[in-house]
Amino acid sequence: MIRFDRVSKRYPPGVDALSDLSFELDDGQMLLVGGHSGAGKSTLLKLIAGVENATSGAVLVGGQNLGSLSRSALPYYRRRIGMVFQDQKLLFDRNAYDNVMLPLSISGFPAREAANRVRAALDKVGLGKREKALPIMLSGGEQQRLAIARAVVSRPDLLLADEPTAHLDAQTAADVARILVEFNQVGVTVLVATYAHELFPGARRLQLDHGRLRT
């Protein structure tokens, strides 16, 4: 599913975020990417999402080399990926329902099917009764769950989550982690950048240190 082949990423003016990184992740696996702040966890996710390009090496997702992906093909590639951002990136002028609806509107889903999917996604993360609420009215944990609902509503093959349990209390963090594990259990490949490995028992781990794989 995902293959990193000697991937390096350098940001101007010469900061190495990732150096010579190689690993593989099969379909349906769950991978935790750990490391200290600035270790390169977010950069790794951004490379997979096509938000950044590798400076050298190859990132392959589903056999597709992202370096050769055209600008016009990139949006369609991103529709196959669910992303939970570190800062959630919710739209604060739209209610929970409309936030989750956004990826389906972008993909051009028929209205009725889209509505069913949105409600199912909100139910799955426990926000079924809060679809009219604006994000500002939700707690931190609820906002994170809303971000997960938006990431999974398109039923992606691959779910990327960047520090999804950061800034959450222990119980809420455990709830969010459980939701991600449940998606993995139904066959979704899940890649989580986190330092809270204990919330995902049994998951494969990849530890980064200054952009390099720590063995």
């Binding site: 999402a49 949006p75 369609y76 991103r78 529709r79 990136k89 956004l102 990826p103 972008i106 993909s107």
Partner: peptide
């Protein structure tokens, strides 16, 4: 701007 950025990340085309 925020909505445009999020839409791009979620796979919106420039035309959209």
């Amino acid at each position: 701007r925020a909505e445009i950025e999020v839409s791009r990340l979620l796979g919106a085309t420039e035309a959209f």
